[in-house]
Amino acid sequence: MLNFQTAINDQKNFSEIKLNEISPIRKLILRGKSREFLSAVGKTINILLPTEPNTSSSNGEITIIWLSPDEWIIFSNSIDNQDFNQIEEKLVQNICKTKLGAVIDVTDQFVMINLTGNKIFDLFQKGSPFNFNEFRNKKGATTQTLLAKIDVIIQNKDQNDINVFVRRSFSRHLYSWMSDSASRL
């Protein structure tokens, strides 16, 4: 089921910024609206879905990012996490089979790129219309926006430690744009 072929297969180390694809990371999209859906998900994975816009929540195992009032992405905090199969199975049982919502495996659809260093936001500034002023100091903050005209999900994992999710077919283009821009910072 897992596609172990990395999309980018490259690592870039510049003096103030490092780019690195994190793979393989399991990812799910969760969709649903009702109160029953929210509580069923909370009971199934022992962590509440963040309902506040542009935020994320995480426990030791997984992280959940708010995408829209009825859409979330869940991903594993560690590479090649076998326990994630159980999480997915339980969600399918408790959410899909009960028709409360939808669970879609997007492991191969989204590529996760990790950026570290103190010039990440200088890099984003070169190609994104989003205002990162508050975002950069708020751990757990997330946003969906454009980066070099490509749709991305960005998560503030920690100070100077940012995750970017991009569709696989755009990932190499975005990565080469980021590498090129980062080399000129």
């Binding site: 816009p53 009032p69 219309p129 989003f130 205002n131 946003t143 926006t145």
Partner: peptide, 11 residues
Amino acid sequence: PYCGEREQSEF
């Protein structure tokens, strides 16, 4: 109404 202030190019 959901995400807050964003630039026009996102819409």
